[in-house]
Write a protein that binds this DNA or RNA. Sequence first.
DNA 1: AGCATTTACTTGGCCGGACACATAACTTGG
DNA 2: CCAAGTTATGTGTCCGGCCAAGTAAATGCT
Lengths: 171, 171
Amino acid sequence: MTVDDAEPLTRSSALSALAPLSFGTLTLWRAMHNFANDKLLELGLYPGQELILLQLYDSDGQTHTDLQRAVRLDHSTVSRTVRRMEQAGLLTRSPGKKDKRAMVVSLTDQGRALQPRVVELWSTVEAVMAEVLTNDRRADFIELAGRLEQTLLAARRSQKLSNADPAQEGI
Amino acid sequence: MTVDDAEPLTRSSALSALAPLSFGTLTLWRAMHNFANDKLLELGLYPGQELILLQLYDSDGQTHTDLQRAVRLDHSTVSRTVRRMEQAGLLTRSPGKKDKRAMVVSLTDQGRALQPRVVELWSTVEAVMAEVLTNDRRADFIELAGRLEQTLLAARRSQKLSNADPAQEGI
DNA sequence: AGCATTTACTTGGCCGGACACATAACTTGG
DNA sequence: CCAAGTTATGTGTCCGGCCAAGTAAATGCT
């Protein structure tokens, strides 16, 4: 028995009552993640790896920092994910010419060969989600998600600042 | 340097072009998750644990399966998370009276003592998100997220069925 | 040039989360 | 009542993801 057994679902949990926006985001994410995962495993990939591939398909030869910004991950996560993908033969890493610190990540033929399937995978996820939305609502959702993300990022930044610099608060 | 350094953000990655709904969901989730995490660590909790607490605050004495359904997690995840929380003194586990298989999870005083702080945490996250939305858009988002989740769950179920029972496809 | 700072990445450690497999405890058909 | 099937958990294993701390290379400031 795995996680997807949640029945059609009475979304009446304590959680959705207390924080419907947050819990809605959480459960949507989990459903999407699990749905994509099944397909990912068929490609021999693990979640997150396909994001890096997609980013490289768009523009090969990016550094860890480029990837980290695009995919919104911690450096350490990118570092080890990229290493695993290198070991799997999907890509190569080499120090940059101008900046020896910057590891430049490049696709191998094997990594490039996955492109159609990875693109199809995400297109499928997108299509499944889009099929129950009108174009207006679809655009709405995208705009809302973007705005909420920015709001949360800003809130986190200011929260960290005030923690790091408590002197400001007393003034 | 951690993940939140992504600048105000030109959301123009290859990912948001290919699958804006999916990528929007992903990035929103990550932003929310990271924002909540900072606060969670201050309570000595790890992500996911607070969901179980909230569920128990609503109704103490639930089984693993109850919790798993509410929080949308795998049994194995619930199993180990609950064990860790037991070791941390937040709750206790005991076999059910009628059904000895079913582990009944109950709050300890220590676990119950966290209630105000955990509730406040999620209220804060919710408030941060809600503050940039009109009531209409807020309701919209909640409804959309719920619908999308159901769609994805259904898609995953039918996908698994057709994989498990390929004979059906040829007919 | 020379030393402090910043930047790019690596490592170690810990938890979350999923799957596959194993086990104990109901439940059910004959 | 018993064997077969179902249900509720537990375990092992592997990857994702974060933070904290460490190293190396580039920059800046004097």
